[in-house]
Amino acid sequence: MSTLVIITIISLCAIGIVSAVILYLVAQKFKVEEDPRIDIVEGLLPGANCGGCGYPGCRGLAEAAVKSETMDGILCPVGGAETMNKIAAALGREVKAQAPKIAVVRCNGHCENRPRTSVYDGARSCAIEHSLYVGDTACGFGCLGCGDCVTACPFDAIHMDPVSSLPVVDEQKCVACGACVKACPRNIIELRNKGPKDRRVFVCCVNKDKGGIARKACKAACIGCGKCAKECPFGAITVENNLAYIDYSLCRLCRKCVSVCPTGAIHEVNFPPRKTETEAEKAQAVTATPQTTRETDSKN
């Protein structure tokens, strides 16, 4: 009995040792020569493999970073500046500071602004609804509300608001990987500069219809009146195809455009409430309203 046990143990050990030797030899023979820095860089990356950098997974970025001399165009949106500094240090290079970005949803067509005109009864997918027809509202540019962006987000950073049925970005979680931007069939979501103290001003609409049609479909639509562009002291606003766009690299967050927009399509976020200006603004609003109505009427 005891010899049996001993023989078993010995033979198992022998098999183990022989296999280990074979494995070692094979590993040596077929070893792939690789730049060891790739592993180091990969270790510094978050490891989410989200593809937000434009490379296939974190290792793809690491390889590109090691190969690249200048580090141009190499940015891990998830890790941000901190990670990039570490990588640059590890590779002994300089890295240009790149402003952090965030996904911005450019549609404000909740039920009150944009009445529903039909009921969509197909598969719950924005891409399918978009390819089928105008959507359950009269606006052919706005959010469809099926949540393709929510499904696409690998960081759980975007959710549908149950009341407005519009997507809401969680500023803490969003790493600007751009997955939602690619998923949205109507190109509503844009990556924009996060801005100082997270303050941003942007046009919350992508409707390219003529003013009258856009306004009819949605109360909060950009009608392309161009007031904001005239108002902007920095030339950051352009109006093209009946749609205003604020270039975030030129915008200085003065917020003048926000007050002149007749439909409230320009949004400001994370600014402190305007206490002192309220009175002045009201006065402005009173004078502004009749003008704008006239303007939109004439456009109709």
Binding site: S118, V119, G122
Partner: peptide, 11 residues
Amino acid sequence: MIMNKLLISPS
């Protein structure tokens, strides 16, 4: 006139 609340789905 766009009718109110017609159902729409793919075929």
